[in-house]
Simulated scan of single mutants.
Amino acid sequence: MTTTPLSKAFIFDLNGTMIDDMGFHTDAWHGILTKDLGADLTKEEVKLQMYGKNEELLVRVFGEGRFTNEEMGKISMEKEHRYQEAFRPHLKLIDGLGTFLEEAHRQLIPMAIGSAAITFNVDFILDNLDLRPFIPVAVSANDVQISKPHPETFLKAAEMLGIDPENCIVFEDNPKGVEAALRAGMNSVVLTTMHEEHEFGDLPNILAFVKDYNDPFVRTLLTE
């Protein structure tokens, strides 16, 4: 696909960036890992492992060879079913995002999701919150070979949008995601829903840290 050099695009991570649901993911993983699988981990320790694909998380915690691919697939889906059941009554966009999406759409700014979530969870959010008219492109864990902090997710999203990577702004909540954006040649806006500013170290591609999409800095991105 031919890219448009002077255009601008927004790429959103999903969990913790568009919806404030990371606590629900943490609870689901903590229950699976400790009660079901016997790992000795606190919730804070689980939180540190929550990046990349579900299968990668299981390997980080238990090592190679503990589970077959089929077993990891079943564990992953059980975790996602528990997460969705718990989060469904609380499902809503982070404050200000609905208005931000509507205005970006009105300005014809291309938008995509670039997430380490599986398609099952991406569809759960897109369909239940009616986001597909605003965000027609979604890259999930099922669409890439290597997950964040590798840049493949964001580079693929940029390619599908037809926008040069350097003209894409990534919205993230996780240091590994910001690192992926950096490696893709993209700047990032950080939502502080799960991680504090000091956890991002000296990553040089961060434009701003914001609590939600009502932050004045976020609004400037629609007028530049």
Results as ranks from 00 to 15, higher is better:
F12Y: 12
L14M: 15
L14W: 04
N15V: 11
N15C: 13
T17C: 07
T17A: 09
I19R: 00
D21M: 02
F24N: 02
F24E: 02
L33I: 09
T34H: 04
K35E: 14
D36S: 09
G38M: 06
G38V: 08
D40I: 08
E44V: 10
E44L: 09
E44M: 05
E45R: 04
K47A: 13
L48G: 11
M50V: 09
Y51N: 12
G52E: 03
E56V: 05
L57V: 15
R60G: 06
G63I: 04
E64L: 10
T68I: 10
E70S: 09
K79S: 09
K79R: 13
E80A: 08
Y83C: 05
Q84P: 08
Q84M: 15
A86N: 14
R88V: 14
G96I: 02
T99E: 14
T99H: 12
E102P: 04
E103S: 07
E103W: 01
I109F: 03
M111P: 02
I113H: 00
A117Q: 07
N121M: 10
N121Y: 02
D123S: 12
F124G: 00
F124L: 04
I125R: 03
D127K: 10
N128C: 07
N128R: 14
N128F: 06
D130I: 10
L131S: 00
R132N: 05
R132K: 14
P133E: 07
P133D: 08
F134G: 03
F134H: 13
I135L: 07
V137G: 05
A138V: 14
D143R: 04
Q145K: 14
Q145R: 11
Q145Y: 12
P149A: 07
P149D: 13
P151R: 08
T153C: 05
F154A: 03
L155G: 05
K156Q: 15
A158H: 01
E159M: 10
M160G: 06
L161D: 05
D164A: 10
P165Q: 07
V170C: 03
P175G: 07
P175D: 11
P175H: 04
K176I: 13
G177L: 09
E179S: 14
A180S: 15
L182A: 13
L182V: 12
N187R: 12
N187K: 12
S188C: 15
V190Q: 01
T193A: 10
T193K: 03
M194P: 04
E196V: 15
H198A: 15
G201D: 09
D202F: 05
D202M: 10
I206F: 02
I206S: 01
L207E: 02
A208T: 09
A208D: 11
V210L: 08
Y213G: 02
F217H: 08
F217C: 08
T220Y: 05
L221A: 06
L222F: 02
E224G: 11
